[in-house]
């Protein structure tokens, strides 16, 4: 029995800049089936049995790391999680040396989180298996953007012409950047919103993201929105002088009930977590009827399973 197949096989998932809409759609379909597995009596299938997944998280992360770990385990892979603190990184080993070590241990997949943009690309150059970018510097966080896409698609259907507002520290956000690739590819109308210091120069947006609208007023941007996505405000932005005060930020750019009410009646409220409740999102909105923040977490496991499956098929053909 032959199955319908999709686009040519990919070896790594480093960013979403070179993904087509068709490829994204086929991944969404796979993620839907993976989500079913998480509701089965036995939440595990043997797809990656005997394979080794190594999580290399050189930057602290609880939720992304546990999500990748559960996803790999649901597919029956053996999982090893390394952090910068408990490895030979402390003893001065370079990233490339660590990759060679991990390869010699028999790893088939590396999930890399790193504070430096581009680190997963370096890993991919020195690793014979597959690399998934688990977030690198300010550059990209493809699995987060994919789980966001999955959640939006699940709630809203086709995303063409849907109004998606991303509010917060766009300039320093890898989540925002990967989301921009995925959302513009799917034809969504994206608005990035925040104070000028966190959005960057209009000239950059015109030349790099001509289809993306920029806004410095959430009151205005929220009107008629289908998706309101708040980003985490990193406290160091305050110290860097990019913001006058947290209270000021919250008043102008916090997701509150009034702003949600001005959006589309079936608007969904999203946040990649962890949240600063009372700053970028108010507690009643975070747990309110429009919030899909918990669904994002569940969908994260399903989408990461889909990514592993996507990379696994045909891996011995190449």
């Amino acid at each position: 029995m032959s199955s319908p197949t999709t686009t040519p096989r990919r070896r790594h998932v480093l960013d979403l800049d070179d993904w087509s809409a068709d490829e994204l759609r086929s991944l969404l379909t796979i993620a839907t089936q993976m989500k079913d597995i998480l509701e089965r009596p036995v939440k595990q299938v043997p797809t990656l049995r005997g394979k080794i997944v190594v999580n290399m998280f050189w930057e602290d992360s609880t939720r992304t790391r546990s999500s990748f770990e559960l996803a790999a385990k649901a597919l029956s892979a053996n999982v090893l999680s390394l952090g910068a603190k408990d490895t030979s990184v402390k003893k001065g080993e370079s990233l490339v040396d660590t990759v060679r070590t991990v390869q010699a241990l028999g790893a088939d997949y590396i999930v890399m989180r790193h504070g430096q943009s581009g680190a997963p690309y370096l890993v991919a150059q020195h690793f014979r298996g597959s690399v998934i970018n688990g977030g690198d510097g300010r550059h990209a966080h493809p699995s987060q953007a994919l789980l966001d896409l999955f959640t939006m698609h699940e709630r809203l259907g086709e995303l063409a012409d849907k109004k998606v507002v991303i509010v917060g520290d766009i300039l320093h956000s890898r989540v925002a950047r990967s989301n921009l690739w995925a959302l513009t590819t799917m034809g969504a109308k994206v608005v990035v919103c925040g104070p000028p210091t966190l959005i960057g120069p209009a000239k950059y947006w015109q030349s790099t993201w001509p289809k993306v609208e920029i806004s410095h007023s959430l009151d205005h941007a929220a009107e008629g929105a289908d998706v309101l996505m708040a980003l985490r405000l990193q406290h160091e932005r305050m110290e860097g002088g990019l913001l006058p005060s947290l209270r000021e930020y919250s008043r102008r750019f916090g997701l509150n009930a009034t702003r949600v009410a001005s959006a589309n009646s079936n608007v969904i409220v999203m946040h990649p977590g962890p949240m600063n409740e009372g700053v970028e999102i108010m507690p009643d909105v975070a747990t309110g009827p429009h919030s899909v923040i918990e669904t994002q977490i569940t969908n994260g496991v399903a989408m990461r399973m889909a990514l592993f499956y996507y990379l696994a098929t045909g891996s011995e053909q190449v």
């Binding site: 197949t5 796979i30 089936q33 098929t313 045909g314």
Partner: peptide
Amino acid sequence: LHSRGPAPILG
């Protein structure tokens, strides 16, 4: 699975 073509769609 590992010797098959690109990700077969799952039912």
